[in-house]
Simulated assay, not measured.
Amino acid sequence: MALQVLALEARLRACRNVRTIGVRPNFTDYNPEEVALIRRAEKIYYPTAFYADLFDAMGKATFPSYHTYKCVQDKIKQSALFQLVGLPHPKTRVFYGKRQQLKIKRHFQYPFIAKEPRGSAMGRGVFLIENDADLEHYTQGRHVCYIQQYLTIDRDIRAVVIGSQVAHAYWRIAKKGEFRTNVARGGRISLEPIPKTAMALAIHAAKTCGWDDVGLDICYFDGQYMILEANMKYGREGFRAAGIDYYAMMERMIDEGYI
């Protein structure tokens, strides 16, 4: 049996070659044996954003990478990074405060998309803004507005990159009358072949951004593939639909030293 690696979060708790000790809000809550394990470990798996920051400061490797954690559930950082490195991404702007919010309609025409800029997932906090009333409802009491171009699509691709390869990719097709493709919002998974161009974009984007465990949402619009957003806490519905044992796959990647 291969040696066990150490994890804090419970994501790999079902893997035979991973010892999960949990996340303690105070480091002093770890017992002496756990402290010794953490200090000796060459790499810590799923350390959380808080501990990933600290482990990076002390030079200890983590999986996912420190850079992956920097953009967890932060659409503002993600969009800025996509724009900075030149990755294809829908027109997106962030507006701060009431004065900037008054300029939203100067940059976007109805309909457009508004999102919770941080902390949302599974299609929650994503709004289709079709008129002044919708915009007023979204901006009311809100200091930060994340506004994105509306794309007339009924499907997108979820490409999960682990390490430096696409571990799995599949289509998500929106249900009738729904603009969101999320499975949690009734989206349907399709295992039809994924274009090589989209797969290559996923690998390039993950490498460019320094992410090694991420679900990238990619769509085809106006003659090109573009990245909608990145999900570091992606679901595993697509793996189950394809008959892929996620835990066995991760065990193998760890055993082979791939991650």
Rank of each mutant, 00 (worst) to 15 (best):
I147V: 05
P195Y: 05
R142P: 04
Q148Y: 08
G210Q: 07
V161E: 08
G186S: 13
A169V: 15
G215R: 09
K175G: 00
G177I: 12
Y170H: 12
E178D: 11
G141I: 07
Y220G: 05
T152D: 08
Y220M: 09
S190H: 15
K176E: 13
R185P: 09
F179W: 13
G177K: 14
C209N: 05
I173E: 13
R155N: 08
D217F: 08
C219I: 10
T139H: 02
L216Q: 01
I162A: 11
I157T: 07
A198S: 01
E178L: 14
H143Y: 00
L135I: 10
W171C: 14
C145W: 00
A167R: 11
T208R: 11
V160W: 10
C209H: 06
D156S: 05
V126C: 04
K176H: 09
A159R: 13
A202N: 03
E136I: 05
A206P: 04
H137F: 15
Y138Q: 04
I162H: 09
V144L: 05
C219K: 03
P193Y: 00
D154H: 08
V144S: 01
D134C: 10
L151K: 07
G210H: 04
T139Y: 02
T152Q: 10
V161M: 11
K176A: 14
Y220T: 07
T152Y: 10
F179C: 14
Y170R: 10
Q165E: 01
R172P: 06
Y146D: 02
Q140C: 10
I153G: 08
L135H: 08
A169F: 15
I162G: 11
A198L: 06
R185V: 14
G163N: 12
I147C: 01
A202V: 09
T152C: 02
R158I: 09
M199V: 08
Q149N: 07
E130G: 04
I173C: 12
W211P: 02
V161I: 09
L128A: 05
Q140P: 02
D213M: 13
R158T: 12
A133D: 07
N131K: 05
I203F: 02
E136Y: 11
A198P: 03
C209T: 11
K207G: 01
S164M: 07
H143A: 00
C219L: 13
A174D: 05
G187W: 14
I129K: 05
A184S: 15
V144A: 00
A205V: 10
H143G: 00
